[in-house]
Computed example of a mutant assay.
Amino acid sequence: MTTTLRRAEGAQRATTLELFYDLVFVFAITQVSHLLLAHLTWEGAGQALMVLLVVWWSWNFTTWATNELDPESTPVRLLLLGLMLACLLMAIAIPEAFGDRALLFVGAYVVIQVGRHAFLAFAAAGRGTIERERASRILVWFATAGVLWIAGALADGSARTVLWIAALAVDYGGPLVMYWVPGRTGMPEGTWRIETSHFAERFQLFVIIALGESIVITGATSSELELDAARAVAIALAFVGTAALWWLYFSSVAQVAESTLERARDRTNVARDVYTYLHVVLVAGIVVTAVGDELVIAHPGDDLPTAQLLALVAGPVLYLLAQDLMRWRIEGGPSPSRTIGIVACLLAGLIGIVAPALLVAALLALVLAAVVLSDERARRRRGGPAPAGQELDLAG
């Protein structure tokens, strides 16, 4: 009965099926970027944020599930392929998620969440196992949120917004209370079995997906415009910025997070806070940065309107803030280089009130490059890559 579960034998790695499953999220992240770009208002930003949180939650919980499921099992393969199809439909609906395709968007999402955990609760594990008990409790939460999601899709205007915010609160609030269900005893933290190498790798791959989407937007936007000197510089700055985002994450933060998770006594809570919650802030920063890059490439010599300037600056700020918050969660204090970087990005935004987009982009790229250099100096002080237990210095 439990043949769908992974065997606890050594370190696990992401499988080709999981990588194939991730492909649909390249499209989904691109859709979120386009949604924000098309609606650069506070309302549009709120809608894009909600859509991103939905996309993230669908991917995130599949990752938690596949950390324990055996992707070589036929039932698990069929499950992932079915979830992938539902994710594709959800992504297709994103541009009209708050319009004519609201029901398709949330309907696909509810099918993903409820279907996955119905499988976990009734097919993946035997009766009386902790896996079945855990999955059944999460299923109760997803089903409750699902009612609110569907009700919101059938409503209009502010009623839809209120119902969807309530649904999102249920979805994101569940892990904070360990999916407590009335009449049942609480679940201990050890209820989740987390294989660190696989779990961390999956989230690192999602960061790559988001960064890849930035490269795609840069290339797609540039290919449709006439190239001159200013635009060529804008393209180069967009690439430098994206490369800096990669460097800042994979040269320090990814290692810090994985090492911390490996050593943590409360591994479930660390995985929840650092990966499930804070990585979505990181991804949001990448998405908004991609939007800012597209705006600069399209209008390098223009003074950007307020909304566009905010988008340009908000991307790097969110990205550095996410890494700062990770440092707070891991060590109880900020990363000085990232805190200074956030302030410097905000100052660049103030300069953007009277300066063209290209200058602001150059200043932001310089800020990110300076934080990278700070990381590299910290690495040299340590004498190279730090051993486990000594790599918590996020350029501090």
Results as ranks from 00 to 15, higher is better:
303 D>E: 13
372 V>G: 04
309 L>F: 15
394 L>Y: 15
185 T>V: 12
51 V>R: 14
17 L>H: 08
224 E>F: 01
357 A>K: 08
245 L>D: 10
223 S>I: 02
79 L>W: 06
372 V>Y: 03
280 V>N: 15
247 W>D: 06
2 T>F: 07
380 R>S: 12
331 E>W: 01
56 W>A: 05
355 A>I: 07
88 L>I: 10
75 P>I: 02
263 R>W: 02
381 R>P: 01
375 D>L: 07
67 N>L: 12
379 R>P: 06
179 Y>P: 03
139 L>K: 02
193 R>P: 00
361 A>Y: 00
288 V>K: 02
116 R>D: 04
181 V>Q: 11
104 L>Q: 11
318 L>T: 09
341 G>A: 09
4 T>W: 01
344 A>F: 09
383 G>H: 10
130 I>G: 00
144 T>G: 15
67 N>P: 10
15 T>C: 02
243 A>Q: 04
361 A>M: 11
269 N>V: 14
311 A>N: 09
177 V>A: 09
103 L>F: 03
147 V>H: 08
330 I>Q: 08
60 N>W: 02
4 T>M: 10
355 A>T: 09
219 G>L: 02
277 Y>Q: 13
203 F>Q: 00
113 Q>D: 04
302 D>W: 00
165 I>E: 01
315 G>Y: 09
157 G>V: 10
51 V>T: 10
273 D>M: 12
140 V>M: 13
332 G>S: 05
237 L>F: 01
240 V>S: 06
32 V>I: 15
318 L>S: 07
94 I>Y: 02
58 S>A: 13
11 A>Q: 13
100 D>Y: 04
260 T>C: 07
211 L>I: 12
134 R>T: 10
131 E>A: 13
288 V>Q: 00
135 A>G: 00
160 R>A: 07
31 Q>N: 03
231 R>W: 08
52 L>A: 14
30 T>L: 14
250 F>M: 11
335 S>R: 03
270 V>N: 00
109 Y>R: 06
200 A>C: 06
23 L>T: 06
345 C>F: 06
388 A>E: 11
334 P>M: 03
350 L>G: 13
194 I>S: 05
15 T>A: 11
92 I>D: 08
349 G>I: 09
94 I>P: 07
47 Q>W: 12
92 I>Q: 09
80 L>I: 13
28 A>P: 05
63 T>C: 00
119 F>R: 06
41 T>V: 10
89 L>M: 13
315 G>N: 09
139 L>F: 03
316 P>T: 07
279 H>C: 05
354 V>M: 02
192 W>A: 13
276 T>R: 13
247 W>K: 00
388 A>M: 10
127 R>D: 15
23 L>E: 08
366 L>N: 09
178 M>H: 13
